[in-house]
Design a protein around this nucleic acid. Structure first.
Lengths: 229, 229
DNA sequence: AATACTGTTATGTCCATACATAATAGAGTC
DNA sequence: GACTCTATTATGTATGGACATAACAGTATT
């Protein structure tokens, strides 16, 4: 019957939400709680660590554990992989590379990726389709040092997105969402009026050694980014 | 001397990124790894669990641990608290309630919060300012059952957002970002042209017992939502 | 008063062990 | 072959004990 750490977490969360432990409060220490609830300290530790990670508690050695004033909750966003997004909605995925050229990385992209000098790169612009309807249009620069072989792949089976996921190791990156009016040249691909408001994603990806790619994705009108807490 | 779980995690991540363990691969089991690295199985477990949470590994009882094909990385987004956002940028926070009325919850909002029947609620529309410049305009419905006392607060010191954070327990919710053209009545408050593209956030908040509030936030043009991995 | 040292304390982590649980693989049955 | 039952196995978790570490508080020193 012994208490699991999830039980302990639920009980602690209950006390926080029921305001038995109010924001700013110092809560009993692990040993006492373990004693009170009848489990080992390790179990309480696991439970409270989990609540701290979720933003409910603030823990500091010696200072003890206290309830956060404003529970700094964090939402998790599964990083969008366009193909998966489309397939998850039961739609047919397709893409078409509209143009592709090799050239040194331009200044704007160099700045985004913290690079300087002449960087061999390739630009690919791709339209993604869901059930034949435009889903997103991406304008991507790929650093060949961070994605060796990318320029030699015909990109007929794998989309640029999928190719990079599969062959380029990556360790960190940034995602930057904003709203913008569709530029005229993109509007044609997305099959909408120029100037319509759409979600734009600017993304940079870095591998363990080299920067890999930076991309601007124009989502089709109506796209929503959904997060749950 | 003794390996910490972070050391084990780093070593495992190194092997994944160096492709010593390739996607789809079954990696050695915990006991063997512990043996090889010279630490207890618990330590390996902690490390691998961490990598699984971060999306690098896939673990299943008996089936073992394997490297994710496409590391389903998750980005964390600190839930936006407008006042903190503004103050974090070193700007002066201010707000003004433009109008406020008590009325039963309309149909659209009832649907969003999974409610039916006649629900006592209050509507508040608020303009948020950073250094005197419009930052966001919110149109909020608050369920009085989930936020008792809200309708009696003059909202002169605390903004609706801050009031709810401080006095209404909440346990879960949804965030829904999209791009939209600013409606004419909002454009006046945000000091921009009607029809300009802006980020819109639709948010629902639920307490442990009752739904609490649903809100639509129109961010000022140029607003960016930044996530890091 | 300012500084340096020294306990004390609560959390952080490790270990060895034990048992629980989910999922697979194989044996046996129809 | 399709099904059921039964090991087997890798991960999940609980325990008690131990020590590490950060941070605070009080004491001693200058």
């Amino acid at each position: 019957m012994a208490l699991g750490w999830q039980d302990v977490r639920d009980e602690a969360l209950r006390r926080i939400q029921a305001r038995e432990w109010t924001p700013g409060d110092l809560i009993p220490n692990e040993a006492d709680l373990a004693d009170e609830l009848g489990c080992a300290r390790g179990t309480v530790n696991r439970a409270l660590r989990d609540l701290a990670e979720a933003g409910w508690l603030d823990r500091r050695r010696k200072a003890g554990t206290r309830v956060r004033q404003a529970p700094e909750r964090r939402a998790q966003l599964a990083i969008p992989l366009i193909r998966q997004d489309i397939e998850a909605r039961g739609q047919q995925f397709a893409f078409s590379v509209t143009d592709r050229q090799s050239a040194p990385l331009p200044a704007r992209e160099r700045a985004l990726l913290n690079l300087s000098g002449e960087i061999p790169a390739q630009r690919v612009r791709t339209l993604y389709l869901a059930d034949g309807q435009p889903y997103a249009f991406e304008d991507r620069w790929v650093c060949l040092a961070g994605a060796p072989g990318f320029d030699r792949d015909p990109l007929d089976r794998l989309s640029p997105n999928d190719w990079l996921v599969q062959f380029a190791a990556f360790s960190r990156g940034t995602l930057d969402y904003s709203a913008a009016a569709v530029p005229a040249d993109v509007a044609g691909h997305l099959d909408c009026a120029a100037g319509e408001p759409v979600m734009v994603l600017d993304r940079c990806t870095f591998g363990p050694q080299h920067p890999v790619t930076t991309v601007r994705v124009y989502h089709a009108p109506g796209h929503r980014l959904r997060l749950e807490i």
